[in-house]
Computed example of a mutant assay.
Amino acid sequence: MTDRRPLRPSSVALAADPALERLLWDDPFLRVISTTCPPGLRLEGEIDLCSRDLLAAALDEAVRFGSGDLHVDLTSVTFIDVAGTRMMTTAAKTLSRDGRRLLLHATPPGTRKVIHLLGWETTPGLMHCIGAML
């Protein structure tokens, strides 16, 4: 199981404006960065069995403690398995109960196809946005 403790910010996170983003987890498979403008998460790496716990923890924290819509930037994600995709649709359903949405930015084509094939494109609160977050 992956260690869930936050690590010291990487040079990438330190170079960014600390008021706008904060490195939550830096794992060999997945890096999770919290953003405030727009409010959400930027994910980098692979989302699979090895990193699923990190994604679950990050989504849970963002859903529970955030307000408004949750933006998830997938620009630097190289792979997402079906279970990782399901976690995002589950988070979208939870957000929709409070009138909030999960906005996926730069969703990889394979992930969009999985969402379509499984009928998850009609998930309440789930939206796809073209391109990365601003």
Rank of each mutant, 00 (worst) to 15 (best):
G131Y: 03
E46W: 14
L103V: 15
L103T: 11
A132M: 00
M1S: 12
P38T: 01
R64P: 05
L95A: 08
A62Q: 13
S76F: 03
G40E: 02
R31C: 10
A132T: 00
A57L: 06
L14Y: 00
S96N: 11
F65N: 15
H71Q: 05
D17Q: 06
A83V: 14
R8M: 05
M133G: 01
D27F: 02
M1A: 15
I47N: 05
L134H: 03
L43E: 06
L103Y: 14
V114A: 10
V63D: 07
G125H: 03
M87I: 09
E121M: 05
C50A: 15
P38E: 02
V63F: 10
V82A: 14
L43S: 10
A13H: 01
T2M: 12
G131Q: 03
A83G: 00
I115M: 13
L117H: 06
T94V: 13
R22H: 08
A106H: 10
E61I: 06
L24C: 02
R4D: 09
K93A: 14
M87P: 04
L55F: 07
V77Q: 06
A106V: 09
R97C: 13
M88K: 07
T78V: 10
R8Y: 04
A92F: 07
P39D: 01
T107G: 04
L134A: 11
D69H: 12
T2W: 02
W25C: 09
D73C: 10
P9R: 00
G99M: 13
D17F: 04
K113W: 14
S51H: 07
T75N: 10
C50F: 14
G110C: 12
